[in-house]
Design a binder for these strands. Sequence first.
DNA 1: AAGTAAATGTTAGAAAATGTTGACTTTTCG
DNA 2: CGAAAAGTCAACATTTTCTAACATTTACTT
Lengths: 257, 257
Amino acid sequence: MLPEERRHNLLRLTAERGRVKVSELARQFEVSEMTIHRDIQLLEAQGLVRKMHGGVALAGVQETPYRERIVQQHAQKRAIAEAAVGMVRPGYTVYLSPGTTTTEIARLLPQKDLTVVTNSLPIAQELMHTTELEVILTGGSVRRYAEALVGPAAEASLAQLFINLAFIGITGMDPEGGLTVYSETEARVLQAVLRASRKSVLVADSTKWGRVMGPRVAALEMAHVLITDTALPDDAVKYLEARDVAVTRVEASEVKA
Amino acid sequence: MLPEERRHNLLRLTAERGRVKVSELARQFEVSEMTIHRDIQLLEAQGLVRKMHGGVALAGVQETPYRERIVQQHAQKRAIAEAAVGMVRPGYTVYLSPGTTTTEIARLLPQKDLTVVTNSLPIAQELMHTTELEVILTGGSVRRYAEALVGPAAEASLAQLFINLAFIGITGMDPEGGLTVYSETEARVLQAVLRASRKSVLVADSTKWGRVMGPRVAALEMAHVLITDTALPDDAVKYLEARDVAVTRVEASEVKA
DNA sequence: AAGTAAATGTTAGAAAATGTTGACTTTTCG
DNA sequence: CGAAAAGTCAACATTTTCTAACATTTACTT
């Protein structure tokens, strides 16, 4: 494995799991711990990770990177979420993927006449307390750092359902790389979601465009709709619409909390 | 668990529960009490928590003086939970039903080498944050008041699993009425649990004896073990042991909170 | 082929984290 | 009140992790 490749993987592993032990990384990559230390030092200088005794964590994040990410780019996510909620009709069964934008959608959902399917623990928690909607949680293994449920059990339970609208927060989207997420298990769950859904809606800010971050979920054109912000380049829109993917670009105008 | 991670979890636990005993934290994180003292000292220097004799409390937060009886009940649940945890062996897959006693068991579980299956959202949440155990959540509809997952999906996912030990908090137990819980759906989930388990352990304080509270889960003698308190009448013990149900009666000794 | 720069491993000492012991303080309870 | 129990904390020993310096290997350049 190339050094740069190794650092990239290190970063990905850290992003996925929130924190990783130095010893584990050394074993994983079959290099000495010293090398890992040097990698970490390098990544820390770029502000990407934070060193802690015995391991490494995502920068600026303690233990739950998920919750921390929520505060970033909130206005944009909120605007995207508002557009997403506009697509929901009474009686629908909607799916919400784990993620910050989808959590925002959950908060804006109508209070009635809706069934929500999710594999995100925080979303289920929130909907349970703040609404009277029917909430269905997929089964599965708890994936700690994403606070999500994954694995064969999650996929199997999705196969039993019919979903009118699936809202999917994606980590990377690229004409060549397609839709990508951090981990293999999450990718598989999303594939099950796509199979169970009549219509799939990607929610992703424009920074995700051109990014290939991990395992591939599906081709770009598998989605029916993309909701993103105005910063998405015109040629990207052209590319998508040529493939029958409807694009909605929203303005993150007012940043009210 | 990394030191910094442990301190973060300590803070989280304190925020959740208002105040926590040093001895409990030491047990939970599997470190000496001295280490906990040092952690607390560090967090106190940052103004995040307040040190108290025997424990730690959230800084700047009013203390809620608790009712004696609640404390008493808690001590009993705690004692039952301790006996329950004593039955767990490394490598086991254990099931925890929704409930306060089982939540207490979750808090006392070893940190390693265990798979936990549950349909309780709070238990999954807690284990996810404070341990590194493999946590499997059954799927299903969210049952609001119990914060539990129920329904055909929950039953189906349990059917896929093998459980070494199932800890079941029961609402009522009676020679004639058998084991009873509040709702039909919960009863069905517990039936699925019993089918998937090699050994089932009832955890219930003695007030549950003679109570028939709702739908029947199974006959009394379906369980292998009952862990309860010393107030359970002798004839109840005799009745149960005649049917090959082992009874463990614990004393709520460590009463003071 | 020789030289150079990058990458990695090794070693040793520094720093951090943890546990243990024992003296001391606070709380509990007869 | 006064003694026993429980909790605190400082000092020391031990283990683990970090870092800097040096040696070695690998890959690229001239």
